[in-house]
Design a protein around this nucleic acid. Structure first.
Lengths: 111, 111
DNA sequence: TAGTTCTGGAACTAAATGGTTCTATAATGT
DNA sequence: ACATTATAGAACCATTTAGTTCCAGAACTA
């Protein structure tokens, strides 16, 4: 029954670059907190808290295999955001907007 | 030149239900702060601040026509989120995941 | 049994957030 | 010139957030 996650929580969880990086890392498969912490200049505890936030937002589930609690990415909240975007997507899929998009892609090569 | 908006700011701006409601409202066209404030049990000033946050996140631009500063929705940051989702979308577009999706849609009739 | 590893709880801090009220300013209507 | 309307700035407050450090417990390893 998944306790119904709010868009509020999902968006808030994604508003942090560390958490987005963790999520990206989890695309490569499950990982322990220690493993997730490795690339960052942060305490393991800090990462543990970030994973906690992701878990609260339903973006991650954990299975404790021995003392290594493995984190796994969950897609449902992301699909919810995708669906939320639908109303706006309609607008930018207009022919007119598409031209603007092409122009901007050209101009935004940086980043 | 639009000062390059970060995903951080965009996600943070969208993490508030009031701000998402304002954005949805702006799908129907431009509006003044006073107009935007009307549906909410909040001070006009509070709404003004919310619009400020949306503006900072590049989701809204304003044109001051007389004393009515009209807010207008901007789609670019939303398209950026859409593109950010691409990596994850790949996963849930797998045949296997699609089955799970159908099951969940059935189970999530509530909300 | 004793030591090591992995993680979460508790307590703390600094900064950001969402809200308020009150005031100032700028443009419009009379 | 004066009152009205629409908005932003400033100051303030309570709550949340992201981080730290230190400690405790659970599970392997020897």
């Amino acid at each position: 029954m998944a306790t119904q996650i709010s868009l509020d929580d999902t968006f808030a969880a994604l508003a942090d670059p560390t958490r987005r990086a963790i999520l990206a890392r989890l695309l490569d498969g499950e990982a322990s907190v220690a493993e997730l912490a490795q690339p960052f200049a942060l305490t393991v505890r800090a990462i543990s808290k970030h994973v906690g936030v992701l878990e609260q937002a339903g973006l991650v589930t954990r299975s404790r295999a021995a003392q290594k609690h493995l984190s796994r990415i969950e897609l449902k909240p992301l699909r919810d955001i995708d669906r939320w975007l639908d109303d706006y997507r309609k607008l930018w899929e207009d022919r007119f907007d598409r031209m603007e998009d092409l122009l901007r892609r050209g101009a935004d090569k940086k980043e």
